[in-house]
């Protein structure tokens, strides 16, 4: 009974004593917070920046000791700063800024990749769900998936006789395999428990497909789509070499023929950054659609 008593009396003077320094504390807290944020940003941004600076430095040294080869970063800036600074110019024909080239290529990848996503997921479900389809098709797919994009070019041209569909086919055929294979693995790995739930509920095949199979397979499908979108972007240079006209692949080929290596380096940076963005975009879509369950 005597225990709580003494704690009352010192409480007030204590709060009074503590009251004045409080504003200072929040100011210090704010400064702390800012410092913490700054540190976090620095740890995320500084290492890649330093690495980039170091690589550019090495490149500069290596390139200046071998004149006539790949231009150094400073030479590239001299040769191509118009191309770097203004990606949006349009002088008609194929004389456009890199933004327009990349956009055209993205449209082609968009069409080719959409087709391969639709066909890939359908075929993947088929060979994942049907043992005979799996036995028959899986070995064929495993062999075909190792054929490089450039090797499909002549076949594609022979099949379609026209540049446009041939280019789309090259993108399609390059990116479809990982989508098929990952979807099939996902379908074969639907947990037995989910299948049992569906059986107890007597879900119809269509209900099973949409309510169990597709959601359970989504993380696998998106792993396939992510690899696939990367490969379709890889195929773009090959397919645009035969297309001509506008497009970042043809741009590279064209600049090579004109011996403008500096412009090619700038275009490569665009290709790399766009590929990176595509990959992140598909990963993000996967996370949103599977509500965070996707295998990253």
């Amino acid at each position: 009974m005597s225990v709580p008593k003494p704690s009352f009396t010192p409480a007030e003077p204590l709060t009074a004593a503590l009251a004045p320094p409080e504003p200072q504390e929040t100011r210090a807290g704010l400064a702390d917070e800012l410092a913490r944020r700054a540190t976090a940003t620095a740890t995320a941004v500084l290492p890649p920046l330093l690495t980039l600076a170091a690589l550019l430095g090495i490149w500069q040294l290596a390139a200046s000791s071998h004149p006539g080869g790949v231009p150094s970063p400073s030479a590239i800036w001299q040769d191509s700063h118009d191309l770097i600074l203004d990606p949006f110019f349009d002088h008609g024909g194929t004389d456009k800024g890199l933004f327009w080239h990349v956009l055209t290529s993205l449209k082609r990848v968009g069409i080719g990749f959409s087709l391969s996503a639709i066909c890939g997921v359908s075929l993947g479900v088929l060979i994942g769900a049907n043992r005979w389809a799996h036995r028959g098709l899986d070995p064929v797919f495993q062999v075909l998936r190792t054929v490089p994009p450039l090797a499909w070019l002549p076949i594609s041209l022979a099949m379609f006789q026209q540049a446009q569909p041939s280019a789309l086919f090259v993108i399609f055929v390059t990116s479809i395999w990982p989508i098929i294979i990952n979807t099939a693995v996902g379908v074969r790995n639907v947990p037995v428990d989910y299948v049992n739930v569906a059986r107890v509920l007597r879900l119809s095949p269509i209900e099973y497909f949409f309510k169990i199979l597709l959601p359970a397979t989504t993380p696998y499908i998106f792993t396939g789509l992510r690899i696939g979108v990367g490969m379709s972007w890889l195929a773009i240079v090959a397919s645009e070499m035969l297309l001509g006209g506008v497009g970042v692949g043809f741009f590279i080929w064209d600049q090579y023929n004109a011996s403008r290596i500096s412009d090619i380096v700038v275009a490569l940076a665009w290709v790399g950054l766009t590929g990176f963005a595509l990959d992140r975009l598909v990963a993000l879509a996967g996370r949103l659609i599977s509500r965070g369950d996707a295998a990253s």
């Binding site: 947990p191 739930v197 107890v200 959601p215 369950d293």
Partner: peptide, 19 residues
Amino acid sequence: DQPGPDRAVVFQNHSLLPW
């Protein structure tokens, strides 16, 4: 002769659909 909702099962590992 087949599964059905008149014999509902509570599975050992709950088997709720995670999505």
